[in-house]
Amino acid sequence: MKKNIIFFILLVSFGQIVSGQKKDGYFSIQGDLSEIKTKFKKAVLLYPLPNEYITDTATIVDQKFSFSGKVPYPTMASIKYLKEEKGPSNVPFILPIFLESGSIKINAVDGQLNHIKVSGSSSHNEFETLKIKNDLFLKDVIEPLGKRIKEVSVLKDTAKLAELRKLLLEEINRSRESIYLGYVKENPTSVIIYYCLIEGGGIPFSPARIKPYFEGLAAKEKQSIQGKSIREIFESGVRVKPGNQAPDFTLNTPTGKDTTLSSLKGKYVFIDFWASWCAPCRKEVPNVLKAFSNYKQKGFEVLAVSLDEPGSRDKWIKAIHADQSSAFIHVINRKGSINDVAKKYGVSQIPASFLVNPEGKIIAVNLRDEELHKKLDDIFK
Rank of each mutant, 00 (worst) to 15 (best):
D272N: 04
V302D: 00
I271H: 00
P310L: 06
F328Q: 00
S262D: 05
F300A: 10
Q297S: 11
L264F: 08
S293E: 13
T250K: 05
P247Y: 10
D323Q: 04
W274C: 06
S293Q: 11
D323M: 04
W316I: 06
F273T: 14
I317V: 13
S325G: 14
N294I: 14
S306E: 07
K315N: 07
S263M: 00
N252F: 13
S276I: 04
N333Y: 05
Y295E: 05
V269G: 00
N287E: 13
F292P: 12
S262H: 06
K257R: 02
K267M: 05
A246M: 15
Q324I: 15
R282S: 14
W277F: 03
K335Y: 14
G336W: 07
T250R: 08
G299A: 01
I332C: 09
W316Q: 07
F270W: 12
L261H: 07
K335M: 08
G299V: 01
A304T: 00
K283S: 10
V331N: 07
I332L: 15
S276Y: 07
E301N: 15
T260S: 14
C281I: 01
N287A: 12
P280L: 02
D248I: 05
W277I: 15
S276F: 12
R282K: 11
L251D: 08
S293V: 08
L289V: 07
R282E: 10
N287T: 11
C278H: 03
